[in-house]
């Protein structure tokens, strides 16, 4: 009870403290987009032959002729009322575009993270239990490879091996085979939606589409997680309280899992938060390679097209995601480590 209340207080304080940061992000991206070269009016004019008049008219319609502080004030008002503007490329409100695409990105990132953690934790633990062994060097090699190879290379490599050569993976385009029926849009997460309607065949199809891009991302994030697990596990295994656990005659499994691992996971929790936030924004390349309709590729397209609103919306979304992920991590940490609750 005492711990819960402490966690609640921390969450509240963090939320309040993150408001200025979010505001700063909004203002900064707004200004950044204005100083970047490229004029959306020129870009969206009817064609290269459009006259100056047409461009000026467009600028007036878009509100680009007004002074920047006025534009900023309008933008802030809109953001405050939940209006992120309209994308010039898709013609839809940015908010709708983002809510349509965010589940795709989240599904990919979360799956990749689960995959990465599922591999990294055991590998890190095993490497720490036998430092300097063949296994330890093997893990180090796999991690180095995962970091060295860029995601678009490893993605293409996986496509080549599993789709082209072995033919066991489905066509690596999009979240679902174009001929398959999509589930009703309940949560936006295909795996969840298929489960909810009980369509196991559809679920398998969606999962099959997901495996390769998720594996590509997992490979990339394996290294920080596995290395951190190994390092922190090594430190904890050499600590005084693990020696105490051995000295009272606890079994090896209990010493490693209850005494060592639970302590070693504390820094891993922090790293996981950082890795997750980075993945969410940085999976643009993976989304591009696998034609994944996520927020990353959407924002990239908008950026190339000098389409202000989606980029600003995307940055705001990422900033909010960062805040939320950090909050979750902090809460988890507060529950996992009783020492944190003392301020």
């Amino acid at each position: 009870m005492r711990a819960l209340r402490a966690v609640g207080r921390r969450v509240g304080r963090r939320l309040v403290a993150s408001a200025p940061a979010l505001l700063g992000v909004v203002v900064f991206t707004f200004l950044l987009m204005r100083v970047l070269p490229g004029d959306p009016a020129v870009f969206f004019a009817s064609g290269p032959n459009a006259g100056q008049e047409e461009i000026d008219e467009l600028r007036r319609v878009l509100g680009l002729d007004r002074p920047i502080p006025v534009q900023l004030a309008h933008y802030l008002y809109d953001v405050g009322t939940g209006n992120l503007g309209r994308s010039l490329t898709t013609g839809q409100p940015v908010l709708r575009d983002l809510t349509e695409r965010l589940p795709a990105s989240l599904e990919l990132t979360v799956t990749a993270l689960i995959l990465a953690l599922g591999l990294a934790l055991p590998l890190g633990i095993l490497a720490a239990l036998r430092p300097g062994s063949l296994l330890d060097h093997g893990v180090r090699l796999v991690c180095s490879l995962g970091v060295c190879v860029p995601t678009f290379v490893s993605g293409l490599l996986l496509i080549y091996v599993f789709y082209v050569v072995l033919g066991i993976a489905p066509d690596p385009t999009g979240r679902l085979d174009i001929f398959a029926a999509s589930p009703p849009d309940i949560t936006g997460f295909l795996l969840v939606d298929f489960l909810l309607v009980g369509d196991m065949e559809g679920w398998r199809a969606a999962a099959a589409q997901l495996v390769l891009p998720a594996a590509t991302m997992a490979l990339f994030t394996l290294a920080p997680l596995a290395r951190m697990t190994r390092a922190s596990m090594l430190a904890v295994l050499g600590s005084d309280f693990v020696r105490t656990a051995k000295s009272i005659g606890l079994g090896r499994g209990r010493v490693v899992l209850v005494y060592a691992l639970r302590n070693a996971l504390l820094p891993v929790i922090t790293i996981t938060g950082i890795v997750f936030s980075t993945m969410l924004g940085a999976n643009v390349l993976v989304e591009k390679v696998f034609s994944w309709p996520g927020v990353g590729s959407y924002a990239l397209d908008a950026l190339l097209g000098s389409d202000y609103a989606p980029v600003q919306g995307f940055v705001l979304l990422m900033a909010s995601a960062f805040v939320i992920v950090n909050l979750v991590i902090d809460t988890l940490y507060g529950i996992a480590d009783p020492r944190v609750s003392i301020e």
Binding site: D240, T244, A245, S247, V258, N263, L266
Partner: peptide, 16 residues
């Protein structure tokens, strides 16, 4: 055979 160690605080598991 049991042991007691120097620096008792670090000899106990901090999160248990």
């Amino acid at each position: 055979i049991s042991m007691i160690f120097q620096n008792p605080r670090s000899a106990l598991n901090p999160i248990r």
